[in-house]
Amino acid sequence: MNTEKNKNLYYLDDLSNYEVANEDKDVRGWNVKDNDGRIIGKVDNLLVNKATERVVYLDVEVDKSIIDANHKPYSQSAKDGIHEILNEDGDNHLIIPIGLAQLNLDSELVFINEINHQTFAETKRVKKGSPIYRDYEIIILDSYNRDKQAQEYEKDNAFYDRKEFKRKT
């Protein structure tokens, strides 16, 4: 059940007592490029796990080229004949685990070297500001890790100990 009690993530813009740490770069407003150097969107916000007190996702407003590709969202469960995951009108944001991002400070760009444009176009999107729950996080990780075997995901905050959430230095 998706309730406030089950909520793991909060948008940084909504947390008045939180800010980007001095040693980190605030990437909101920066363009995001895929592994082919194509712009896939712009960082609109950051998603924070309050229990671990760290940013775990970039909230990206996707480029029109992602929406225009009009791909159906990828799902591990689609292999079993279940096709309930859809992108609806107005779904123009997606989340990217912070550990997949590499920053170019000089050009103020975020590079996602492990994912291509088509994968982003096939990833389930959400409306701006929508609550993000674990079921959506799992859909995202499955979409980005689709070449790997089905994975088991931790149900508690150990979920954010995965390599996808380890910031690159």
Rank of each mutant, 00 (worst) to 15 (best):
L46D: 11
K72P: 02
K5G: 11
Y74E: 14
E84D: 15
E164L: 07
I98V: 03
E61F: 08
K79I: 08
V60K: 08
T169Q: 03
E4G: 09
V43G: 04
L15V: 09
Q76V: 10
I139A: 11
R125P: 00
Q102D: 08
D91M: 04
I132H: 10
D34M: 11
L141Y: 00
D34Q: 09
N22Y: 11
K25R: 08
D106K: 04
E122Q: 15
K33W: 08
S107K: 06
Q76A: 07
T123V: 04
L109W: 14
A51N: 06
A101N: 12
Y10W: 14
L109N: 07
D135E: 11
N22A: 15
A150T: 14
D80R: 12
I115Q: 11
L141W: 10
K64W: 06
I140N: 13
I140V: 11
R125Q: 12
K5V: 15
N8P: 12
D26E: 05
I112N: 00
V62S: 10
E108P: 02
D147P: 00
N104C: 06
G90E: 04
N6V: 15
T169V: 04
K64H: 01
N116L: 13
D44H: 08
N45Y: 12
E61A: 15
E137N: 04
N31D: 15
L58P: 00
L109Y: 04
I96L: 00
D91E: 13
I95N: 11
F120H: 02
H117S: 10
I95D: 07
L141N: 13
D156R: 01
L103E: 02
E122W: 12
A21D: 14
I85Q: 11
D26I: 06
T3N: 09
D36M: 01
K50Q: 13
H71K: 14
K148L: 15
S75W: 15
D161T: 05
G90P: 07
I40E: 03
N92L: 07
V126F: 15
D44N: 05
I138A: 13
G129S: 02
D106T: 10
N157I: 10
Y11M: 03
S77Q: 07
Y153C: 07
F159C: 02
D63I: 01
T123A: 00
E164G: 08
S65P: 00
L47K: 06
G81N: 02
